[in-house]
Design a protein around this nucleic acid. Structure first.
Length: 554
DNA sequence: AGTGACTGCCC
DNA sequence: ATTCTGC
DNA sequence: GCAGAATGGGCAGTCACT
C-alpha cells in the first residue's frame, strides 16, 4: 500500500543485490545503510518480513562485500565475539547517559527526567542529537569502523578506562546521522530491541545464500527454480545453517566456511569440537504432573533431581586439557581448579575426549551434604587456586554429549545416559550422577518430587528416554517441575505496592515494575520486601499505571 | 586502603 | 530466572 | 510453540573517588 522507503524493503522478486544496494563493490559499507534496515525491521511485527528485510541486505553484502559479512552478521545479532572468549564491553546505562549528556550538551538531570517518559536511551539520544545543529557533515560511520570501536571499548580496561571509553562513545555519537545513534547506543546496551535476534538473523542468512549464493554470478537463484522449489531450498538451508551455528557457535568460523566452501560442504567444516562449548539444552516449566502424561503418552521417560547450583558443560580435549563452560557458554575453567583436579578420578586413564553436562553444587565436606545456591554464588570467580578455595563444590553429571571423538547429540538420551554411566564412576564428595528414577505412575513421581525437595533440590527434570530424546542445544525440550509451579504447593505472600518504576522499551510510558512491602504492626511501618515486574499482561500494566498515577504521594 | 557505584553473570 | 505476546 | 523482549534478587569483580 505504500512505496518502499529503502531498496532493502523491496520484495525478493524485485530486489537486485547489486542494483538495489546503496554502495558499490569494494567500498566500505556505511553503518547508515544497516541502521536503515534496522528501522525497517523495527517497523513490522511480522517475522517473515523482518527476515526478508535482513536477508536482502545480506544478499548485497554477499554480492558486493563478502569480506564484511562477518561484521555485518555480528552487528545484526548484537554481539561482538563468541561468548566463550569472555570479551565484555563493560558499558552500562550510566556510562551511556553520561556520554549522551556530554555529546549533546544536556544535563544528566534533564536526561534522566526525559528518560523516564521515553524509556529508551537510544531514542532519547536521537531526539537530542536531531536538535543540535551540525556545522559540517561528519565523516560517515562505516560498519567495520563501528565494529572495531566495539572491540576497542571491550579491550579498554584499568585506570582511567572510563574516560577513554566515554570519549570513544562520544566520538561515535557525534558522527551519527538519522537513526544511527539509536542503534549504536542499543548495541552498546546489548539490546537492539527491534524484534530481531540470533534465530531470525540466521534464517535471514539462509535465505540470502539460497537466493544469492556466495562467490557466484547468480544474483537471484529463484529465477531458475520451479514452484515450491525456493521454499524447499530455503527450508533445507535454514536447517544446515542453524546446525552449523549449534555445533560451532563462532560466527566468524561458520561464515568463513560458508563463503569458502558453500552451503553443501558447511556441515563438514562445522562440527562439534571439544574445547568449543555448545548451547545448553533447557527445561520448560510444567504446571502439574498430569501434564507429563499428556506429553509422554506411550513414551518412556525418566525423572531426575533438579539440583540447585550452576550448570557446567565439561570438556576433555585431546591434549588432556579440561575446560568448564557455564549455561551461557562463558568459560568458567578458571573458577573451578578443584573440579579440574579431581575429575580425572571419575574416569579411566585411557579416555581421549568427552563433553558432559553437569550441575556444580556447593558441598559441605563435613556433613556430606549439598548447600544452597546462595552459598555457591559466594565463591570466587577469578584467580581461583587450590589455596584460596573457600566454597567447596561437587558435580552432579546428567548427560554426555560427546565421547572419544564421537558426537552423541543425535543419540537418544537412553543411549547417552548409558555411555555416561559406563564411562564414569562416582567419587565420594566429588562426582555423582544425578539421582534419577524411570518412574511410570503419577504417585511415584509425586513421591520422588517430595524426596527431591527434602534433599535440598529444586524439584525434578523430566526427560524422554528413547523417542525425540536427542540432545537439542538451546531448546527447552526437557520439562522441569518445581514445587512453585504446582497448584497449592508454592509459598505465597500478601504484599502491598508502595512504589513504582517507569518501564523501558515496550513498557515506556507505563510503570514497568512495582516495589512491594509488608506491613509491620509493631513499628507501624510498611517494610519493602521486593520488586515485581512479571506476570502482568499489557492490559494489567495499563490499568495499574492509570490507578497508581491517581494515588501518587510524591 | 577503604568504599560505593557500576557492570556482568549466575539463578 | 519468570512471564507475556505476535506470528 | 517459537522467538523475542519485558522484568526479578544477588553475588564477585572493576574502577573512581576519597
Amino acid at each position: 500500500k505504500s512505496k518502499p522507503s529503502s531498496p532493502e524493503e523491496t520484495s525478493n522478486l524485485n530486489f537486485h543485490p547489486v542494483n538495489n544496494a546503496s554502495w558499490k563493490k569494494g567500498q566500505k559499507i556505511q553503518y547508515l545503510y544497516l541502521s536503515r534496515v534496522f528501522d525497517a525491521v523495527a517497523g513490522t511485527t511480522k517475522r517473515l518480513t523482518k527476515t526478508r528485510l535482513v536477508s536482502n541486505f545480506l544478499r548485497s553484502v554477499i554480492a558486493l562485500s563478502p569480506e564484511q559479512l562477518v561484521e555485518v552478521f555480528y552487528l545484526c545479532c548484537n554481539k561482538i565475539a563468541p561468548q566463550y572468549e569472555g570479551i565484555e564491553l563493560g558499558i552500562g546505562d550510566t556510562i551511556l547517559l553520561k556520554a549522551v549528556s556530554e555529546a549533546t550538551g544536556t544535563t544528566m538531570k534533564k536526561l534522566k527526567e526525559e528518560l523516564g517518559r521515553i524509556g529508551d536511551i537510544g531514542t532519547l539520544a536521537q531526539q537530542k542529537r536531531n536538535k543540535q545543529r551540525t556545522i559540517f557533515p561528519p565523516p560517515p560511520l562505516k560498519i567495520s569502523g563501528v565494529f572495531k570501536n566495539l572491540l576497542k571499548l571491550a579491550k579498554t580496561t584499568g585506570h582511567k578506562s572510563g574516560t577513554v571509553k566515554g570519549d570513544l562513545i562520544k566520538k561515535m555519537i557525534v558522527s551519527c546521522r538519522e537513526s544511527e545513534i539509536k542503534y549504536i547506543i542499543r548495541c552498546l546496551q546489548g539490546n537492539l530491541r527491534i524484534g530481531l535476534a540470533a534465530q531470525t538473523v540466521q534464517s535471514s542468512l539462509a535465505q540470502a545464500v539460497v537466493l544469492t549464493p556466495p562467490g557466484g554470478k547468480v544474483m537471484d537463484a529463484s529465477k531458475h527454480m520451479g514452484p515450491g522449489e525456493l521454499e524447499e531450498e530455503i527450508k533445507k538451508t535454514d536447517k544446515i545453517i542453524k546446525q552449523a551455528f549449534i555445533e560451532v557457535p563462532n560466527f566468524e568460523h561458520v561464515i568463513t566456511m560458508l563463503l569458502k566452501h558453500g552451503i553443501k560442504e558447511l556441515p563438514k567444516h562445522c562440527q562439534l569440537t571439544p574445547g568449543i562449548p555448545i548451547k545448553a539444552m533447557l527445561g520448560k516449566p510444567a504446571s502439574g504432573i498430569s501434564e507429563l502424561f499428556e506429553k509422554f503418552l506411550n513414551v518412556l521417560f525418566t525423572i531426575e533431581f533438579k539440583y540447585d547450583g550452576e550448570r557446567a558443560q565439561i570438556h576433555l580435549l585431546p591434549d588432556g586439557t579440561i575446560k568448564i563452560f557455564s549455561r551461557n557458554s562463558e568459560d568458567n575453567t578458571g573458577k573451578y581448579p578443584d573440579l579440574i583436579a579431581s575429575l580425572p578420578e571419575a574416569y579411566a586413564s585411557g579416555m581421549e575426549t568427552f563433553i558432559i553436562d553437569c550441575e556444580v553444587v556447593a558441598w559441605s565436606a563435613k556433613d556430606k551434604k549439598i548447600l544452597p545456591f546462595q552459598t555457591l554464588s559466594q565463591r570466587k570467580r577469578k584467580d581461583v587456586s587450590s589455596e584460596n578455595i573457600d566454597i567447596n563444590v561437587v558435580l552432579f553429571a546428567f548427560d554426555c554429549i560427546y565421547m572419544n571423538g564421537k558426537s552423541l547429540i543425535n543419540e537418544q538420551f537412553m543411549e547417552r545416559r548409558k555411555i555416561l554411566r559406563e564411562s564414569f564412576k562416582e567419587v565420594e564428595g566429588k562426582f555423582f550422577f544425578a539421582k534419577g528414577k524411570d518412574a511410570k505412575e503419577p504417585e511415584e513421581i509425586e513421591e520422588f518430587l517430595k524426596l527431591s525437595i527434602e534433599s535440598s533440590c529444586e524439584g525434578l527434570m523430566v526427560k524422554a528416554l528413547d523417542k525425540d530424546a536427542q540432545y537439542v542445544p538451546d531448546k527447552r525440550n526437557w520439562i522441569k517441575i518445581k514445587k512453585d509451579y504446582l497448584e497449592g504447593m508454592s509459598d505465597s505472600l500478601d504484599l502491598v505496592p508502595i512504589g513504582a518504576f517507569r518501564g523501558k522499551g515496550k513498557r515506556a510510558g507505563l510503570y514497568g515494575c512495582f516495589l512491594l512491602a509488608c506491613y509491620d504492626p509493631e513499628s507501624e511501618e510498611y517494610q519493602s520486601i521486593t520488586k515485581i515486574g512479571t506476570g502482568f499482561s499489557e492490559d494489567d500494566l495499563k490499568k495499574h499505571t492509570e490507578f497508581f498515577k491517581k494515588h501518587l504521594l510524591e
